[in-house]
């Protein structure tokens, strides 16, 4: 049900296309979503699009991105495709996984 697109208006050369697969509003999914949003805002301001796909609603989409674990974050762009599974609680791992250079605080 939760299918929302958050688009940042600004178009930059480097754009991040992210997809988060969840299955209903489970605590794990919610944690993952919250974490992801936090990291993106922090490190990729205006440089990303995030699509949230609820497999309970659209189960047919699971095969396309080879989803077997929930929650799974897929980085579609830039290639190569990367996947991070879990509730994304470890910020460092997520950033490494997405190959994002963290913004110095």
């Amino acid at each position: 049900m939760v299918k929302e697109k958050i688009k940042q208006a600004k178009i930059k050369e480097e754009k991040w296309e992210l997809r988060l697969y969840i299955a209903g509003n489970t605590p794990k999914s919610m944690t993952a979503l919250a974490n992801l949003k936090k990291y993106c805002e922090q490190h990729l301001p205006d440089k990303y699009t995030l699509e949230i796909i609820d497999l309970l609603v659209q189960p047919q989409l699971a095969a396309g991105d080879q989803i077997f674990a929930i929650p799974t974050l897929v980085r579609k762009v830039p290639v190569p495709i990367r996947k991070i599974i879990g509730d994304l609680s470890n910020e460092e791992k997520v950033l490494v996984g997405l190959n994002i250079r963290p913004v110095k605080k």
Binding site: A69, K83, I84, V94, V96
Partner: peptide, 18 residues
């Protein structure tokens, strides 16, 4: 191409199978 962080389950597989 997979990184694991935190809690997850295999609901995706269940859903696909289902």
């Amino acid at each position: 191409e997979i990184e694991e962080t935190g809690e997850y389950d295999l609901s995706g597989l269940f859903i696909r199978l289902n």
